[in-house]
């Protein structure tokens, strides 16, 4: 059995937080939102560029390397769009990540991936920006599609 040592190191962060001065939590959150907005434009351009790259990747033959690269890119889109409250785009990217994380590369998977990427690009179209109902409809469609795909995998007979 290994020897267990328990100790309490100094927590410098706690001491700094308690120092006089600083800002209120309300101001800190407000300032953070303003600071985040200042980089929105450049982040949106980067997101659109990533969607183009993702579409190009999807047109190549499926293999583990391509899927891993697509997974990483979809994950970046999920993270970065979510921080700017593009919740539908973020959710669509999350759904694509789930799909790409599955090992099965047969059946309707390729088409489902293609639909995800087309939907994500559509969600970035200016016409969609002010149409909450349309964005919700796109997301609902993706959810149904992905659920059917995953359900098929789950109900497959285990291989012997």
């Amino acid at each position: 059995m290994s020897v267990v040592r328990r100790f309490r190191p100094e927590n410098r962060l706690a001491k700094l937080l308690e120092m006089p001065g600083g800002v209120s939590i309300g101001s800190a959150l407000n300032n953070a939102s303003i600071a985040l907005e200042s980089i929105r434009e450049s982040c949106m351009q980067a997101l659109d560029q990533k969607l183009v790259v993702l579409a190009n990747m999807a047109s190549r033959p499926a293999n583990a390397g391509r899927d891993e690269a697509m997974y990483l890119l979809a994950n970046e889109i999920f993270n970065e769009s979510g921080s700017f409250n593009l919740s539908e785009l973020s959710a669509a990217a999350y759904s694509l990540c789930t799909l790409l994380d599955l090992e099965d590369r047969n059946g309707t998977r390729a088409a489902t991936i293609r639909v995800h990427i087309d939907s994500m690009r559509a969600l970035r179209h200016p016409d969609m920006a002010g149409d909450q109902a349309a964005r919700t409809a796109v997301l609902d469609g993706l959810r149904n599609l992905t659920a059917r795909h995953i359900e098929t995998l789950l109900t497959d007979e285990p291989s012997t």
Binding site: L13, L16, L17, E18, M19, P20, G21, G22, V23, S24, I25, G26, A28, L29, S42, C43, A46, L72, N75, E76, N79, E80
Partner: peptide, 22 residues
């Protein structure tokens, strides 16, 4: 609590991220 004061002005933070945008 929005009225609680915090002071992070002296804190030194390391951010390790996957992309420069993140």
């Amino acid at each position: 609590n929005p009225n609680t004061a915090i002071n992070l002005t002296k804190a030194v933070v390391l951010v390790v991220e996957t992309t420069s945008h993140a």
